[in-house]
Write a protein that binds this DNA or RNA. Structure first.
Lengths: 345, 345
DNA sequence: AACAGTCACGAAATCGATTTCGTGTTGAAA
DNA sequence: TTTCAACACGAAATCGATTTCGTGACTGTT
């Protein structure tokens, strides 16, 4: 209906020039008090708002940041988004979200789409397929173009830019140490294939904890999942076929499948087997028994990533030094890993 | 580094005018085959991409849609986003996401921010606080300004625009009927306060199912939650203090709290009490026992909303008639509501 | 030879806002 | 009376791309 007001229309209406209107609205001393008040009153009355697009073009900055994630129906990523959005909003930025669905092609497409002027900088977590292909041309291109990029969680070592990660290895080590402290003797790991960077690191953390306690790493007790969507049966079978009293899983879903397997075997959690996993989402809190986890502080990661990016956009480019921020993890002990009675004495 | 290529630079480099370059790249017949090839080759070589912002300004359309949601760390909303993103991406649109965190002020702020030229249209689910205040000026303003708006899930009756909702009342009725079919005689409802539109409708569906089966609605068996974040203890107490053999909850979280309460009472699910809820998220699938639910098909809602909005943006404004699309629900029976043995004979 | 019609391209307006320069008017100082 | 500064405002360039309208150079027709 109302095709929204422009400076030109105000100028015509008030019989002054466009420049005068612009200056008046920005409180320039060039304009007389009287004219200024008249223009501002008119603008307020008709609710004038400068056109963002025109401003973006003029200023060569869009005040929006692009966020490219592998998926979104996943508490961890959703939490990251919430953190980013919180900071972006506070600092006057908008967030454009794109999903790669873990596909390399979609990741490339989306980056090209956004890089053509729509955004001032990128925050991204690379797709699984991209990590598998190890093809990062699209990233290099965007960076060479002078656009700031912050990598979160699923990062790429060979790309130099700001990064926000969690200490996956240390988190995993802490988790397994917790199981050991609880008296577990045969601890299994349910993890992902190695090309997923965070999966690999967590597997290493698992091994590290065992070695630090002079345990041998039994490869048959490590299950590496390729296809996450159809992992349940695989995990149930794994649990059924192996003897264990502790399980470290790299995410909540693996944990719940494992617990199902344990129950089917006629054993109980934590009575016979202790379970702990990464990712502290709703599932962990609500599950019965509630799940012990390593909390990744997704919101903090998101906030940190957004601050890093916006700082680089707004602050003088003093240093070309890139930061890698490590967000701490915390061990949250719940029912699934309560101390075994045999270990209490 | 490379401050990205513009038409002007190509023109200067090739010693032709800007108009010629633009026309050549758009395959205009005005330009000779030879010049066209030369320009296109140059553009490809240096990877020219037109500036989106300049295009937006010129075309008066940004090819991006604004999405304003109450929250995101919630499977249902995350699923809606995925659906919207899927369609938007396919049809060449970007999605800017803002979160209101259920706050009225943030909802208004974000709408103003986006409405100033950044987007072509809105998809939104109104904040709880907004529904409580019943103040929809910001919505009316945006709509009067001529910007298409699609409301999803948490809609507002008094606003005329396209809407995508689920049949909350019917879904609830189906759920409760399922419990009745399973032999439940005392069915409790765990729902939200009435000003949340979907909560109210679901409560009505619960009552409707009971009446259709000639049962009386016992108000003491209806628990209305105000503060969702601190609802667990309240629910546990409610379950402890009342006698019931069936529970209908308006979301997964209430279900799990209820199950915890039942267990604490020394009863089991579904043996003693059947449980069913709205929202088919990860939690329902993974929980032990797995939860029977009413699936809301969030992805479909998102896809439908995006299609509605983009149609209105692109198709001739043939009709001012607004659609209200009702997305069906489906009953998913899992372990938490398996038929009671007593009811089987 | 004169005129019309292509062809191939450039100039300029446009989108909406900001900002740098000018410039006409006024009052005061010399 | 002349001159100069301050004042208040407008014209025009700019951001990057598209598009309308013109125009100079040829070609072809009679």
């Amino acid at each position: 209906m109302k095709p929204k007001l422009t400076l030109k229309q105000i100028a015509r209406e008030l019989d002054v020039s466009v420049s005068t209107v612009s200056k008046a609205l920005r409180d320039s001393v060039e304009i007389s008090e009287e004219t200024r008040q008249k223009i501002k009153a008119f603008a307020k009355l008709y609710n004038y708002k400068p056109n963002n697009i025109a401003l973006s073009l003029k200023n060569r900055k869009t005040k929006t940041i692009g966020l490219l994630l592998p998926e979104i129906v996943h508490d961890f990523f959703a939490t990251i988004i919430a953190g980013i959005e919180e900071v972006a909003n506070k600092r006057g930025y908008n967030v454009i979200i794109c999903l790669s669905n873990n596909s390399f092609d979609r990741e490339v497409m989306n980056m090209e789409m956004l890089a053509s002027g729509s955004i001032d900088g990128f925050i991204l977590s690379v797709a699984k397929e991209t990590q598998q292909k190890e093809d990062y041309h699209h990233l290099e291109e965007v960076i060479n173009q002078g656009m700031p990029v912050v990598l979160v969680d699923r990062v790429v070592d060979c790309i130099t830019c700001d990064k926000v990660i969690i200490d996956d290895m240390e988190g995993a080590r802490k988790a397994v140490q917790h199981l050991i402290d609880n008296g577990c003797r045969k601890i299994a790991a349910i993890t992902t294939v190695d090309y997923v960077s965070v999966g690999k690191l967590r597997t290493q953390g698992y091994a590290k904890a065992l070695k630090e306690n002079n345990r041998t790493v039994d490869e048959t007790l490590i299950l590496k999942i390729e296809d996450i969507d159809n992992s349940e049966q695989q995990i149930v079978n794994f649990v059924r076929d192996h003897d264990m009293d502790g399980i470290f899983a790299v995410n909540e879903h693996f944990s719940t499948s494992a617990i199902k397997g344990i129950n089917l075997k006629g054993l109980s959690v934590p009575g016979d087997v202790s379970v702990i996993s990464f990712s502290d989402g709703e599932l962990s809190k609500r599950f019965i028994p509630s799940l012990s986890t390593i909390n990744q502080h997704g919101a903090e990661m998101g906030r940190k990533a957004a601050d890093l990016l916006i700082d680089r956009l707004e602050l003088p480019v003093d240093d070309e030094k890139y930061q890698t921020n490590v967000i701490g993890t915390s061990l949250i002990v719940r029912e699934s890993s309560s101390i075994k009675s045999t270990a209490m004495f």
